[in-house]
Design a protein around this nucleic acid. Structure first.
Lengths: 138, 138
DNA sequence: TTTAAAGTTGTAATAATTACAAAGTTGTAA
DNA sequence: TTACAACTTTGTAATTATTACAACTTTAAA
């Protein structure tokens, strides 16, 4: 499906850089995120990795993603009403959700001069979600 | 607290316009939203109205807000991780959340030429959330 | 007044996430 | 190698927002 490959060494280097000890589970979850650029949920990751990691626990997936978000390796995406998606691409961009097929698309951000934030307010981060109909569903 | 007043007649007219029969609960909830421009949650509304509407049920608050959202009287705001806020102001604007005090501020939108949505994609609606530190908390 | 539809209520079910304690793993110092 | 502490994983239970649903109440029309 996804062409982009990531080698084991890069995974290890990334974890190392961020001061995260490279457990088998963490490596596998991070690798999964690199190979599946679909903004997967905990459920997705858990289901897909379970066949390989027979004893994987959902709690581990939650713990690991929490850690990755804290260490700024992945970004949590609040585009869904009732669960969180995760994005391995932490560069500034926004998301489009097709309200028909449910697919999430990445959107380049339009270097907007960041809104009318009043003086005295300090932006830390922001998120933009666009909902609509995608090309395939029209 | 909030200066903006709304009279009973306007509330009734608005419900009428949208084809919503004006039950006591609906009137009170809508009035609450007009008087409390704080992007309240179901919990907020339920707690605050309970003293006046002794038998109010949380389900009624959920039902009513669902109806209001469908009829385009209020907008659901997904700025929080684990509950929904509601905004009586349905005009296009974005939201700022102070990560220190938790307060939500309205932001005028910077008539951005709506992002780089690829041709063939059709936007239906969008949301922008900015997180940071507000004036009072610096 | 009768009756059906609409609205409200309380409780139970659902589902994502977190809390927590027990079990397993790893690395290091003796 | 052994002992031990720190870290990691796991499974279960708790939490919490929201939805489902059925019973009850209100409303409005005939």
């Amino acid at each position: 499906m996804n062409i982009k490959k990531i080698d084991h060494q890069s995974i290890l280097r990334l974890l190392e850089e961020k001061g995260i000890s490279p457990s088998f589970q963490r490596i596998k979850i991070l690798e999964y995120l690199f190979l599946n650029r679909t903004h997967p949920s905990v459920e997705d990751i858990y289901k897909d990795l379970s066949s390989e990691l027979l004893t994987l626990s959902k709690t581990t997936v939650y713990n690991t993603l929490k850690l990755f978000v804290e260490k700024n390796i992945v970004k949590a995406i609040g585009i869904e009403k009732d669960f969180v998606r995760y994005d391995i691409d932490i560069s500034p961009h926004s998301h489009f959700k097709c309200i028909k097929c449910g697919k999430i698309y990445d959107l380049k951000i339009n270097e907007e001069k960041d809104n009318n934030i009043d003086e005295g307010f300090k932006k830390v981060y922001s998120e933009k979600y666009i909902y609509g109909i995608c090309k395939n569903c029209k």
